[in-house]
Design a protein around this nucleic acid. Structure first.
Lengths: 338, 338
DNA sequence: CTGAAAGCGCTTACAG
DNA sequence: CTGAAAGCGCTTACAG
């Protein structure tokens, strides 16, 4: 590759000191009291030559990279894709670059990624943590690395969290179904022990208990990257013919559940009330369109970036731990109209 | 953040020279003839202390980052998500890290991203190029930055490409439909001028011309991030009632088309033969399951990484330009059984 | 077999 | 108002 111009080259060609060029480039002409003429000469030259400072050198010197590392469960999942995209834009506004990777909820992968990112000297971490990654994340906390967890939390770790009220999300969905006349509601979820999934389950259980209903729960054994067989769900439906409505605990389970419903449409002719957690670009296109429990993605993204920015200010390393919890929102569509 | 141990700290604590530590860490104990005992001491110590070399410093010194930058159209699109994931794994096997971003086919964004990645000193680029980005990409070529384009090419740029035979993909799909008894096939695509889309259109036109059929083409005005209204497609179908089969030129158009078909199911009761470009995790779950023209993702990923690795070996900067073209594969499912 | 020194491209006290 | 020098953490010729 062609060698790029350095600040030294520019200083030599312009007959000024390296530090002068640096000051101009960093907008420190005031403190350093650089003359207008010198400033203009440097600016003209660098603009013209298309000079961009070498970030690597800058990082090495300042100990800051202006990079934020973000680890999500799976970037292909629309929820994570959207949130990453929003965080990326917000980070850019504050002059930070975002790099991200999928952990696939794999403890080894998350550990490896944290190490890699650390070696790249990221200034802060945003992580959707996996059960089992407590030890590695604890290292970050002990190093005083600015850090925000989101989507789920790790109960044993005292650090910053941005979450939603998963319990309430399901609870208001149940209330809506009840009001719409459904009385036998099945809850279809994964067997994940993550806090978000457990809280959604609790929301269901609480509502059912409070109303003296029978709980009917399907927990599917699922790992990221697996394809769920719709037959798992159709079998469950055929065994639980009393059900008149279904809540899916997350978007990919819902997609699979909708396939299952198509499969058994011939054998049992009934229309279920349907609600899915996570709104999805396609849910309003379905026939019937699907009622969803939407996460306030904009709020979450803003909550994450603001918390991290605060923590990345050096003087705030010892400020209190922050947890922000947002409320999800029910988007009512055709699938819950009796 | 806590300051990390440096090679200097280690050298001091072990009473050896910095260069000795460096040699051991880089496995150069042979050339540098480091004694077994010294080697063991250093290795034990660094392993124990969990020391990881500072990549920033290493990059600055060697001029190499061991990072590959990849720009795709939209990471949330399953095709790009999969290919990125595969390239990432292959790159890791060769000790390269992959960073990636979505261009959204936006020329400004792609230009900005290339600049950002250059400043991060990536060792090579993998790009799904956008029309209009010729100038910026030409700069990379002139700098002799290792570079591979994929998915589409830019006719005016002489550089390395990894592609599929889009023309043939549609052509064999048409042949299959004809053999299955369909004779009035509509082609539903975007109005994108990208080579991949244009080649797919050419495949359709050629087949139709060769068989003296009438062409029926819908080109939807679409930008990444847009939601296509299914009504655009249903209007087209209602105007072209002679059609008995449809080919969708890409996965998101197909998803939208399937919504449109549901909408008009009541008004026109007929079953279209359906084929979509790009296989998709959900296409085999649909009822009927959808016949697709699948891209050989594994081959494409391997083609990309091998080409780039070759170009990143310094001595190969002046080796000939490489173009690899793979054949797509028809996956026949229920949607094309009459 | 091992170490001292230069240098990658920056920023930042400090001296004048 | 401007410049010379140190130093971030490495690698790599080179000297012994």
């Amino acid at each position: 590759m062609k060698k790029r111009k350095s600040i030294t080259d520019i200083a030599r060609e312009l007959n000024v000191a390296i530090s002068t060029v640096s000051a101009v480039l960093n907008g420190k002409t005031e403190e350093r009291r650089i003359g207008e003429a010198t400033k203009k000469r440097v600016l003209d030259y660098t603009l013209n030559a298309g000079y961009k400072p070498n970030q690597i050198a800058r990082s090495l010197r300042t100990g800051k990279s202006n990079i934020i590392g973000m680890l999500v469960e799976e970037i292909a999942n629309p929820f994570f894709a959207e949130i990453t995209s929003k965080v990326e834009k917000k980070a850019a506004q504050h002059n930070y670059e975002l790099i991200y990777s999928s952990t696939e909820n794999d403890v080894n992968k998350i550990d490896r990624l944290i190490t890699t990112y650390k070696n790249r000297q990221v200034d802060g971490f945003i992580i959707a943590p996996t059960i089992g990654s407590e030890k590695k994340i604890k290292e970050l906390i002990e190093d005083k690395t600015p850090l925000v967890l989101f989507d789920r939390y790790l109960p044993t770790l005292a650090t910053n969290n941005v979450l939603i009220n998963n319990f309430n999300g399901i609870y208001i969905a149940m209330e809506h179904l009840k009001k719409s006349g459904y009385m036998n509601i099945g809850f279809i979820s994964t067997n994940s022990r993550q806090t978000n999934m457990q809280d959604r389950l609790s929301g269901y259980r609480s509502f059912v208990n409070e109303h003296n209903w029978d709980a009917s729960i399907l927990e599917i054994d699922f790992k990221i990257g697996d394809t769920i067989k719709p037959s798992v769900i159709s079998k469950y439906l055929l065994k639980n013919l009393q059900l008149d409505a279904l809540i899916f605990s997350t978007n990919y389970i819902a997609l699979c559940g909708l396939s299952a419903l198509q499969q058994i449409q011939k054998s049992i002719s009934k229309t279920y009330g349907i609600i899915s957690f996570d709104d999805n670009t396609h849910f309003d296109l379905f026939k019937p369109s699907i009622t969803t429990i939407a996460q306030p993605i904009e709020d979450i993204a803003e909550g994450i970036i603001q918390t991290l920015l605060l923590k990345m200010k050096e003087e705030n390393y010892n400020s209190p731990i922050i947890t922000k919890t947002f409320e999800p929102k029910l988007i009512i569509r055709e699938s819950t109209k009796k």
